[in-house]
Design a binder for these strands. Structure first.
Length: 441
DNA sequence: AAGCAATGCAACCGCCCTGTG
DNA sequence: TCACAGGGCGGTTGCATTGCT
């Protein structure tokens, strides 16, 4: 346990990646996929450990990354998800397509925590600071990430009776197979009523909840209050790779460019149900009158949150369909699971051509400047100016203008079988699915 | 302009989980 | 069943940049 064997090897480079290294890694993964990461450095000619390559790919080189600052909607979503999930950054990142857990983690630590404190909200408990300062929350130090996550999940700390389960997030009522449950309503100091899950054992319910919240459970697992599937419409790679292995290029869903399709416009079109209003409806948030008439607010355990814009009420596409919900879930699970080969022994397998095409768009513009090879590749498709624009303009651009280059198709065969539809339509379709799914709540 | 502090972010570290032999 | 290796995650670190004095 602990450090990987590769990390003990000497002569491995550490620190910042050079453009040359980036290019090597990019070329290799584009051509062969990553396969097993430990073999990537060797095959790619890099003096790095596999973990370092993986990290570099996931956090920087991966083509479906969204660049730029976080939108207000994204920030709100992160705050809301953090209230539910705690520091489980990967799961939070799964709800923000194109964003990495590292990015979100950094944003949280550097920015969002301060913002919450400025609003008088404790970023750890998401309760009012005054309540936390005078309350008992300080007596529960967080020891590690697991405990942290679980303590975060224990949203309503006013009822932490020994032997009872952690409170379900936002008072969800869960039903556990083989573990009788009942719900207990309780009120916090602000009169907000939450529904607590009473389970036979603490550990069982905790584990149960964590599992339910992080895996692809069937709709019937939940008694209609916790839209796990919806929260997990993007994948948790770890879970996907284990509980639902995703073969390389075997996804059956349509191509979907996260970077472009989950643009700010797209986000605003389908995320609202997941933000305050969505959570309010499905997760027990209690809307309250905002101090500012231009802002919608919601209350979590007495903490008031604000969201900007009028995005909260646009959930008109509520043609519910539970089967759509399932397919939707698997769609996202599959979609972002892996860009590599499952088997590192077959590096000869060629990656789809459009991987090469699209990769150029997602590389930082500065890298083009620094890298003649990338520049040359990019120029085959786009002018530098257009590339630059794509990087800095509102990503809504992709929704309307980009029909080929931004596609990162996982399933080439699928494309051939299902000819492609306009990828924008694919995105619209899936966004519609999501909207419908949320509307179902 | 120089020095310092604050901030942001990329990368590393250490641990846990899972699959495999 | 156990040990091991690899993948993944969250926490932390360190460097580069930015802002202020």
């Amino acid at each position: 346990m602990g450090r990987h064997s590769c990390c003990y090897k000497q002569k491995l480079r550490k620190g910042l990646w050079s453009p040359e290294e980036d290019e090597k890694l990019l070329r290799h993964i584009t051509k062969y996929g990553h396969g097993c990461w430990s073999s990537v450095p060797k095959q790619a000619g890099l003096q790095r450990c596999g973990k370092s390559c993986r990290l570099r790919w996931i956090n920087y080189l991966r083509p479906d990354l969204k660049r730029g600052t976080f939108s207000q909607e994204e920030e709100n979503l992160i705050i809301e998800l953090h209230a539910v999930l705690g520091n489980r950054w990967s799961q939070i990142a799964a709800q923000l397509p194109g964003r990495t857990d590292n990015e979100i983690k950094n944003l949280w630590n550097s920015c969002l925590k301060k913002k919450l404190r400025q609003r008088g909200i404790d970023p750890v408990t998401h309760k009012p600071l005054s309540e936390v300062e005078h309350g008992e929350d300080k007596s529960q130090p967080r020891t590690n990430s697991k405990d942290m996550a679980s303590s975060e999940l224990n949203i309503n700390t006013n009822n932490p009776k020994p032997g009872t389960s952690p409170v379900t997030p936002r008072g969800y009522q869960l039903e556990m197979e083989g573990s009788p449950t009942k719900t207990v309503n309780s009120s916090d100091n602000n009169g907000n009523t939450t529904t607590n899950l009473m389970a036979s054992t603490t550990t069982a319910s905790k584990g149960f909840f964590l599992d339910k919240f992080s895996t692809n459970s069937q709709p019937s697992d939940l008694v209609g209050h916790l839209p796990v599937h919806q929260l997990n419409y993007a994948s948790n790679a770890r879970l996907s790779s284990t509980s639902n292995p995703t073969p390389w290029f075997t996804q059956t869903t349509q191509a979907f460019d996260i970077n472009s399709e989950f643009s700010s416009a797209a986000m605003s079109s389908f995320l609202p149900p997941l933000t305050a209003s969505f959570l309010s409806a499905s997760m027990g948030y209690k809307p309250s009158v905002a101090d500012s008439p231009s802002m919608a607010s919601f209350t979590v355990n007495g903490s008031r949150y604000w969201e900007t814009g009028a995005s909260a009420n646009n959930n008109s596409n509520s043609s519910s369909n539970s089967t759509e919900l399932q397919s939707n879930s698997s769609f996202y699970d599959n979609n972002s699971s892996s860009w590599g080969l499952p088997d590192c022994s077959t590096p000869e397998k060629e990656a789809p051509l459009h991987l090469m095409e699209s990769q150029a768009e997602d590389i930082k513009w500065s890298e083009y400047l620094n890298n003649p090879l990338l520049m040359a590749a990019a120029l085959q498709n786009q002018t530098p100016q257009s590339l630059y624009n794509m990087d800095i303009k509102s990503e809504t651009h992709f929704l309307t203008n980009n029909s080929s280059n931004s596609m990162w198709t996982h399933n080439q065969q699928q494309q051939q079988q299902e000819p492609l539809q306009n990828p924008n339509m694919c995105a619209a379709k899936d966004i519609h699915r999501l909207t419908a799914a949320y509307g179902h709540v």
